[in-house]
Design a protein around this nucleic acid. Structure first.
Lengths: 340, 340
DNA sequence: TTGAAAGCGCTAACAC
DNA sequence: GTGTTAGCGCTTTCAA
C-alpha cells in the first residue's frame, strides 16, 4: 500500500473555502490576532484541523518581514560544552515566540562565514555566536544585519554588539594562582594545538603570565591535534611525564583530557594530589561520578546561554558597555592540594 | 560610538541598480544558474560583495516553492548519542544543497508534535526523526507533508515512510545470548524509568525474552528517573547489589550508567568480569580511555545518520520495503567473560 | 467583527 | 546571454 503523497500543501485558501470564512479571518484565528467571534473561530479551527493544515511560514515571514528565529552559531556539537550553552539558550527562549536554529562551524572561520551567510539569509531576529574572533566579512555581515548580535563565552576583546561570557585570561590566571598557592612549582600544560581555539589560547596566556610573574614559569607543554578524549589525555600525560618526570602539576585545556590524565596517573600509582596535581577546564558534570574529582574552572556555560538569549529576546536590556562579564569559578575538586 | 543599524536589509534590486544589471540576471549570478557572461558575472559579484548583500531565502523559498532544509527531530542533545547521529547526517548532507535544522523533543510526544508542526511550517525538503512512536496528529502531519520522512534508530515497527536503524529487540536478545554463553546466570537490569524511551523498552523485552527462554529469567531490576550519569550508575549499582548480592551480571540501558557501575564495582574490589559481569548499550567512544572497557552494543549511530541523510538527499533510493536494517554489533570489551 | 486589495523579495517561464 | 511578467501564500492596511 502506498500512501498517495499530496502534490502541494494546503493553503489558507483551502481552509477559507472549507470553513466559508475569508482567508484574512482564517489567518487571524490561526495567529490569535484581532477580534474574531467565537463561532467563526470554532469553524476555522475545525476546518484547519480536519484538513491537517500547517501554516506556511515562508509566506508568512515574507509578508510580515519578521521571522521568529534566532541563529546560534557554535564551533562543535561533540564538545560537551556547547549542548550546555544551547540548553541555557533554549530554556530562556522557551516562553517566547523565538526559536533557536543551530549552525556548526567546526572551528573554521571560513566555515563560520558560510554558516552566518546562510543563517542571515533566513532573516533571523537575532544572532548568538561563540567567540569574539571572526573574519572581516563575517563582522560586516553581522553589523549590516541590523539585528541583535550576541557573542558568547569570551569577553577578552571588543564585541560587535554585545558579548556575554567569562574572561579566559582571568580564568587561566586564577587557576595559576591557586596552583602556586598550593605550593606546586614545576608546572606543565597539555592542550589542543588549535590556532582557532582562541579561548584556550587566552587561558594559557593568563596562566603563563601569572606563573612567570611568580618566578615559576611553565616548564613543559604538550599539544595534540583533533578532538579531546580520555584516551588522548592518558597518552599525552604519559608522554609529558616520561619526558619530564620532575613535573608536579599538569594544567589541561579541558576536563576530558584532564580526566584521562587523572585515570592514567592513578593507574601508575602516582600520589594525587601529593606528588602530582591536576586541573582541567569547563566544569562538565558528565565526569561527576569518577572516583576523584578533577580540579577545574566552571565556565558558566548554561548561564551564558541564558543571558545571551535574554538579550536577544529583549527580556533584558543591551548593556551600556556591550559587555556582560560572568566570573569563572574555581572548583577545587580532589586533585589539587590545600593552599599552604 | 553606536553603529547605525540599517533599517531594512538589501534586496536584489539594490544589487541590480548598483551593477546596472537586471534583477533576474543578478539572481542568476548569485545562484549560479543559467548562462551569464563572465563580465556581467563579475560586475554583479563585485556589487553584491561591496554592498554586503545577503539573499533573502524567505522570498526565494516562496518564489521557488522549494526550501533546502531537512528537519531533524531528536529527543535530546545532552544524550551523547544524538550528536553522533547528527554528525552522520551533516557529513552526508555536506556535499548537497540541503541543510539540517534540529529540533529537540525532550522525549515528549506533545512536544514532538509541536516541534514537527513548527518545522513543517518551513516546508522542509525532508524530515528525519527519531523513533517509530508518534502521536496520531504527528503521523498525519508527516504523511500529509508530501516529503520524504525517515524514522531512525529503531526498526521494530512499521514506518510512516522509511526507517533506518537497528532492531533493539534483537540488540537486547543478542546481549542476553552472549551473557548466557559466558556462563552468567543471576542477571539484573538497571535502566531509566521512561515510558517514552521505546528503544530501551524494546531492548529490555528482547533481553528478557532470551533469558526466560533459557530458563534464567531476569532476577532484579532497578529503575531511575532523569538523565544518565556516572554518578547515577554508581548509586544504582550499589543499591541493587546490596539488595541482591548474589547477582553475577548487570545489564545497563546505556554506557554512561554502566561505566558508573563499573567504576563503583572496581572501587569495591569486586572481580570483574569474574565475579560480576557488566554491559551497557550504545558504544559511545567518549568512554574509550577508562581503565577497562565496558562490554556494549554498537548502535551504529553515525551510519544510521548517514543512511537517513542519503535517502532524504536522494543519493540512495527509498527501499522497497521501507526498512533499512543495520546490525547491532556486540563489543565484548573487558567486562564480560569469554564464552565457555 | 469581517473582507478586499496590495505587496513582501524573489524565481519560473517565457520572450527577445 | 539578458530582460519582462506574473505570482508564490501570506499579512498589512484600510474600508465596510
Amino acid at each position: 500500500m502506498t500512501a498517495s503523497l499530496p502534490r502541494r500543501s494546503l493553503t489558507l485558501r483551502d481552509v477559507s473555502m472549507a470553513s466559508g470564512v475569508s482567508e484574512m479571518t482564517v489567518s487571524r484565528v490561526l495567529r490569535n490576532r484581532g477580534d474574531v467571534s467565537p463561532a467563526t473561530r470554532e469553524k476555522v479551527l475545525t476546518a484547519a484541523r480536519s484538513l491537517g493544515y500547517v501554516p506556511n511560514r515562508i509566506a508568512g515571514g515574507l509578508a510580515s518581514q519578521r521571522v521568529n528565529l534566532v541563529a546560534v552559531v557554535i564551533p562543535s556539537l561533540s564538545n560537551l560544552v556547547f549542548p550546555d550553552v544551547l540548553g541555557g539558550i533554549s530554556a530562556e527562549l522557551d516562553d517566547t515566540a523565538l526559536q533557536p536554529v543551530v549552525g556548526v562551524t567546526h572551528y573554521g572561520p571560513a566555515r563560520e562565514e558560510a554558516v552566518l551567510y546562510d543563517m542571515l539569509s533566513w532573516r533571523p531576529s537575532g544572532v548568538i555566536l561563540a567567540g569574539l574572533e571572526h573574519s572581516p566579512a563575517s563582522r560586516s555581515m553581522l553589523k549590516a544585519a541590523g539585528i541583535p548580535v550576541v557573542e558568547i563565552m569570551d569577553i577578552d576583546g571588543p564585541p560587535i554588539d554585545v558579548t556575554v561570557g567569562i574572561s579566559h585570561e582571568r580564568a587561566g590566571a586564577e587557576m595559576a594562582a591557586h596552583i602556586l598557592a598550593a605550593g606546586y612549582r614545576r608546572i606543565g600544560f597539555i592542550g589542543t594545538h588549535m590556532p582557532e581555539d582562541h579561548r584556550a589560547r587566552k587561558r594559557l596566556a593568563g596562566f603563563e603570565r601569572v606563573l612567570a610573574e611568580a618566578g615559576h614559569p611553565l616548564v613543559a607543554r604538550e599539544y595534540y591535534q583533533g578532538g579531546s578524549s580520555l584516551g588522548k589525555g592518558r597518552e599525552l600525560t604519559g608522554r609529558i611525564l616520561s619526558r619530564q618526570p620532575e613535573l608536579d602539576f599538569l594544567y589541561y585545556s579541558n576536563d576530558l583530557i584532564g580526566a584521562g590524565g587523572l585515570i592514567w596517573a592513578r593507574e601508575q600509582g602516582i600520589d594525587i594530589p601529593g606528588r602530582l596535581g591536576l586541573a582541567g577546564f569547563n566544569g562538565v558534570d558528565l565526569l561527576d561520578g569518577l572516583p576523584i574529582r578533577l580540579a577545574t574552572t566552571d565556565a558558566r556555560r548554561v548561564e551564558i546561554g541564558r543571558r545571551a538569549a535574554r538579550i536577544v529576546a529583549g527580556k533584558e536590556p543591551r548593556p551600556e558597555s556591550g559587555v556582560i562579564a560572568l566570573a569563572p569559578t574555581f572548583l577545587p575538586g580532589d586533585t589539587i592540594r590545600a593552599p599552604r
